[in-house]
Design a protein around this nucleic acid. Sequence first.
DNA 1: TTTTTATATGAGTTTTTGATCATGTTTTCA
DNA 2: TGAAAACATGATCAAAAACTCATATAAAAA
Lengths: 104, 104
Amino acid sequence: MPAISAKLRADILSALAHPNRIRILEAIRRSPACSCEIGPELNLEQSNLSRHMKILVNSGILIPQRDGVRINYSIADDEIYKLLDLAGELVRKSAERSIQEVEI
Amino acid sequence: MPAISAKLRADILSALAHPNRIRILEAIRRSPACSCEIGPELNLEQSNLSRHMKILVNSGILIPQRDGVRINYSIADDEIYKLLDLAGELVRKSAERSIQEVEI
DNA sequence: TTTTTATATGAGTTTTTGATCATGTTTTCA
DNA sequence: TGAAAACATGATCAAAAACTCATATAAAAA
């Protein structure tokens, strides 16, 4: 099988590569929610949050579902969290290596 | 253990979130190399490539090692490739879901 | 010691991303 | 029907990222 193009992989990584979008995904990890709950929780401007949600939906990471006036978001694929956890692991290990260097 | 901050995770994801940097990492995956080899292979401007390499080194993803005039790069942590593969999987599955939708 | 090879970087430009304000749209409910 | 709640979006601005050209630096070889 051919590898997925670098462009497509860069696109999904770009969608994830923002502190607030990561915080949004962690909030939804705890429990699916609408922006009206996430906004106050993360202290984000309504229009700003709306655009972040749009990015996450357009990139196929979140799935929106209307429920009356609200729109509930759920994760399209739990593996996203594997990716976020892995990123955390990489940061942790990288920091460890930096410390080792200082100790030498 | 406390989760790694969203900012730090966003930083490493940002370093990965560029088509050419992904192609650079795939080239190094095949075999560690210097920019002088990667540049022509990927058809990248020298100064442009140099800056991409700097980003990958500064973010702790690549480790530079001088060998005469050249600088060889190797991966700091193979798990980076797990992350890139996972991103590919996510793209593939997301595309599959889109197709399903059309078929409905 | 001059040349050559590989890499780095200052300066300038263009493109992309993010934030905000004001306003618009959609849905529900009084 | 009209107000209220949740969300979307046009317009604008600022900041960051990416690219390029020219030039600088570092190491090796002639």
